[in-house]
């Protein structure tokens, strides 16, 4: 089942001002997995996914999406940035933000029409935000903003979903809602990559995991590699998985 490679990262090295943030990363993400990227602060988790998305240019190495460079495959990939990366006081509504998910398939200049609006409304319904569609986005709670971002990615109907800390600062209800949607995506055969912070929930939520701390520590199925050895190598302190599970 897990033969086809969705994302292939080769010898990837990224540096900010000569300081390496990612060092020689090799990584293959099989199609259809729900993968967590875990690692301490400053481990380069966000940088790794931004490099996958061609937002950051690496100083060496390459990324392939289903065997081709990102530029040719951007319609296959949906990105959910960190909630804090945008200004939520921007003058626009929830529906409008979700509509932005259709812009990629529309391409340059063409405007969204009735079809795009319908898709956006469906995505809003899926994340349980339909009644907030005409809300100004600054008047949404943190969890609601995160759902809007998720809805925007769902509209893209991509094969790969890449998310930067979608559970950060959301309440338990929203976390449940989001993880249910991610599991549904996996059921549909989509590949989901999530930068994740809460080690406790890794075995429950994910089936695939990558340990990252500037270098790749390990990658594989949660069953096989989510153990104290890798946690200790990644975080540098003694972890006991038995406590976590």
């Amino acid at each position: 089942m897990k033969e086809k490679i969705a994302i292939k990262v080769d010898d990837l090295t990224v540096a900010y001002n000569f300081k390496p943030v990612l060092w020689d990363i090799d990584l293959s993400v099989p199609e259809g997995v729900l993968m967590a990227i875990v690692g301490p602060n400053g481990a380069g988790k966000s940088t790794l996914i931004k490099a996958m998305l061609d937002i950051i240019k690496p100083i060496a190495g390459s990324v392939e999406i289903f065997g081709k460079p990102y530029k040719k495959q951007y319609k296959e990939v949906a990105y959910v940035p960190q909630k804090g990366s945008v200004d939520w006081d921007f003058p626009t509504t929830a529906l409008d933000v979700v509509m932005m998910g259709t812009y990629g398939s529309l391409g340059w200049i063409k405007r969204p029409g009735r079809k795009q609006k319908k898709e956006a409304l469906e995505a809003l319904e899926k994340v349980g935000m339909l009644e907030f569609r005409s809300r100004q986005i600054s008047q949404l709670s943190g969890g609601q903003q995160q759902r809007i971002f998720l809805a925007r990615a769902l509209v893209q109907q991509a094969s790969i979903y890449i998310m930067d800390e979608p559970f950060q600062g959301v309440d338990a209800t929203t976390e449940k809602a989001i993880i249910n949607i991610l599991k549904e995506l996996r059921k549909e055969g989509k590949t989901v990559v999530v930068v994740h912070h809460d080690l406790q929930t890794v075995p429950e939520y994910f089936d695939w995991v990558t340990f990252l701390n500037v270098k790749k520590i390990a990658t594989g199925s949660v069953k096989d590699i989510f153990n104290d050895d890798n946690l200790t190598k990644t975080y540098g302190i003694n972890y006991k998985v038995s406590v976590l599970q």
Binding site: V86, T92, W108
Partner: peptide, 14 residues
């Protein structure tokens, strides 16, 4: 799109 979320704009291929 770009003024709201520049990274996302890039990820959409613009």
């Amino acid at each position: 799109l770009q003024h709201f979320d520049a990274d996302y704009t890039k990820s959409l291929g613009f």
